[in-house]
């Protein structure tokens, strides 16, 4: 597989990672996502990792980078579907994925993004009005 496909769903971008990525592919995904956020003015990015059996520190860092960079581009990222074995291993490995929000599935992820952007915009409106 050359690139991981990025789907557009309304104001969200959805990425489903289904292959065991080598490092280059992960970096390409990062670049493609940032370009897609900019091009589509997306408000939210959902990265579904329910098919991933392993998340090591490289992938963890990639997720952290995506979350941070997308925030700069005014989009929220949520990682969804992490498997229990992966979560247990990440805790043991010492990775807490700071700055990365998570949800059990894509639907809950979208809900999370909608709620948080609603809150933020509510604040903006109150500040202006």
């Amino acid at each position: 597989m050359d690139r991981i496909p990025i789907l557009k769903m309304g104001e969200f971008l959805l990425v489903t990672i289904q292959v065991d990525m080598h490092d280059r592919l992960a970096m390409t995904l990062q670049d493609d996502l940032m370009e897609a956020i900019r091009a589509r003015a997306a408000r939210g990015v959902l990265i579904d990792i329910s098919a991933l059996e392993i998340v090591d520190s490289f992938i963890g860092r990639m997720l952290g980078n995506i979350a941070a960079m997308s925030r700069v581009l005014d989009a929220e990222t949520v990682v969804t579907g992490m498997r229990p074995a992966v979560a247990i291993t990440l805790v043991e490995l010492g990775m807490s994925l700071p700055g990365v929000r998570t949800a059990l599935d894509v639907e809950k992820g979208m809900e999370l993004i909608r709620t948080s952007t609603r809150l933020l915009e509510g604040d903006d409106r109150r500040a202006q009005g």
Binding site: I54, V55, D56, S57, P84, A85, I88, T89, L93
Partner: peptide
Amino acid sequence: LVEQTKIVTAASE
């Protein structure tokens, strides 16, 4: 399964 995940993750690192 949990042990497998830990082993493969360590190997990846």
